[in-house]
């Protein structure tokens, strides 16, 4: 088992047209082309998707748990930022 030699990739799957790509998980692969193929085998074999992205995990900059409060806490008590005062017309999907 030499998986440790291979970099980690994050996989994003678009489940159907009109929806955005959603993070599905991660995998190991030696390069981008094989990462895409591994993603096909691991995350779309039951018909889950119509499009795949793979991104090197090292390319992702993530927020730190230490910054949780300054980052996210101030948004908690501002309900006026939520578009809950609009009526959504019938027939609009994916909102």
């Amino acid at each position: 088992m030499t998986t440790n030699d291979w970099p980690l990739w994050e996989v994003f799957v678009r489940s159907r047209r009109g929806l955005s790509h959603t993070h599905a998980g991660s995998l190991h692969a030696p390069d981008a082309e094989l990462a895409l193929r591994n993603a096909r085998d691991l995350y779309t074999r039951r018909g889950e998707g119509v499009s795949l992205w793979v991104v090197p995990s090292s390319a992702i900059t993530a927020s730190s748990p230490d910054e949780k409060d300054p980052f996210f806490e101030p948004a908690a008590d501002k309900p006026y930022r939520h578009p809950t005062f609009y009526e959504i017309p019938e027939g609009v999907q994916h909102l």
């Binding site: 088992m1 030499t2 998986t3 291979w6 995998l27 190991h28 692969a29 193929r37 591994n38 085998d41 691991l42 074999r45």
Partner: peptide
């Protein structure tokens, strides 16, 4: 298989 990902590929 040499790695988990490849095992799934071969099984598919």
């Amino acid at each position: 298989a040499p790695v988990l990902e490849e095992e799934v590929a071969l099984a598919n």
